[in-house]
C-alpha cells in the first residue's frame, strides 16, 4: 500500500520528465544526476589518450560487504557502464573505500594517494561520517575546498558525491546540512556533484527501491549500487562532452 501510493504520487508529480539512462529502473532519477560543470581533463583523456583512469575515494558506502561485495558496488558498476558508453576507450575504476573517515581525514591522505594512483578523475564520496560526528559544517566546507584544490593541482578532475539517503536513521543523523554544503561547494568550485541524497530519496519516494527493509541479503543493495554506477556514468559522459556543459557556467 505504501509503495503503491508513493508510486502514484510520484507518477503524477514526475510524469513527462524525459530520461536518458538505459535502465528504466534507474532512469526515474536521471534528471537529478545532470552534470552542472565540465570535466575537461576527462574529455581530453577520452579524446586523445583513449584511456580513462578513475579513482573513487570514499568510506564504507562506496563498497558493499562480503567477498563479492566489491564487484557489486558502484565503482565496479561504473566501470562496466562507462566501458559500454565509451567503446574503444580503456576505462579503469579503482576504489579507495576506507570506513570511518571524515572529509578532513581523507584530505590528509590525498597527496600520497594521488602520487601513487595518478587518476584522471577522482570521485570523492564523503559527508556521512562528518554528519555522525557532528563536525561543524563550516570546517567541513573548508575541507571540501582544500580537497578539491589538491585534487585539481594533482591534475585530476573531480566529481563530489554526497551522503546516502537512509530513511530509518534520518532522526539520528542530520545528513541534510552536509548534503547542502556539498551542493554549494560544488557550485562555487565548479565541479559536478553526484547528488546521491536526492537520487536515493527519489527512488525511495517512488518505491523504486525499498530502503526501509530489514535484510541481510545483498540484492537490493546491489541494484542500488548498479543504478548509482549507471547514473554516474551518464553524468561523467555528459560532463566530458565538448558542448555538453557550457564551460565557465556551472549550470
Amino acid at each position: 500500500m505504501r509503495r503503491l501510493l508513493a508510486a502514484l504520487v510520484g507518477v503524477f508529480t514526475y510524469a513527462g520528465i524525459a530520461t536518458a539512462a538505459e535502465d528504466q529502473t534507474c532512469a526515474v532519477a536521471a534528471h537529478l544526476a545532470e552534470a552542472e560543470a565540465p570535466l575537461p581533463r576527462v574529455a581530453a583523456a577520452i579524446r586523445e589518450a583513449r584511456e580513462l583512469s578513475i579513482l573513487v575515494i570514499g568510506t564504507s558506502s562506496s563498497t558493499l560487504p562480503g567477498p563479492g561485495g566489491a564487484k557489486l558496488a558502484f565503482p565496479a558498476r561504473l566501470e562496466a557502464a562507462l566501458a559500454a558508453k565509451l567503446p574503444g576507450v580503456a576505462v579503469r575504476v579503482a576504489a579507495e573505500a576506507i570506513p570511518r573517515r571524515s572529509a578532513t581525514d581523507m584530505v590528509a591522505s590525498f597527496p600520497s594517494l594521488l602520487a601513487a594512483r595518478k587518476p584522471t578523475l577522482a570521485i570523492w564520496q564523503t559527508g556521512t561520517f562528518d554528519a555522525i560526528r557532528g563536525i561543524d559544517t563550516e570546517s567541513f566546507a573548508v575541507s571540501l575546498e582544500n580537497g578539491i584544490r589538491i585534487l585539481h593541482e594533482a591534475g585530476a578532475d573531480v566529481v563530489v558525491m554526497n551522503p546516502q539517503f537512509s530513511p530509518r536513521t534520518e532522526a539520528m543523523i542530520a545528513t541534510a546540512p552536509y548534503a547542502d554544503t556539498m551542493r554549494w561547494v560544488a557550485i562555487q568550485q565548479e565541479v559536478p556533484l553526484f547528488d546521491r541524497s536526492a537520487v536515493m530519496r527519489h527512488w525511495s519516494e517512488l518505491g523504486t527501491f525499498d530502503l526501509y527493509a530489514q535484510t541481510k541479503k545483498l540484492d537490493t543493495a546491489a541494484q542500488v549500487h548498479d543504478c548509482i554506477g549507471q547514473l554516474l556514468a551518464q553524468l561523467i559522459v555528459q560532463a566530458a562532452k565538448p558542448n555538453g556543459v557550457a564551460s565557465g557556467d556551472p549550470r
Partner: peptide, 17 residues
C-alpha cells in the same frame, strides 16, 4: 529500538551512529 532492528548491507556506514 532502531539500532536493534537496523540491518541492511546498504547502510553499513550509517550504523556507526
Amino acid at each position: 529500538y532502531v539500532s536493534r532492528t537496523f540491518d541492511n548491507p546498504l547502510f553499513l556506514e550509517e550504523m556507526n551512529v
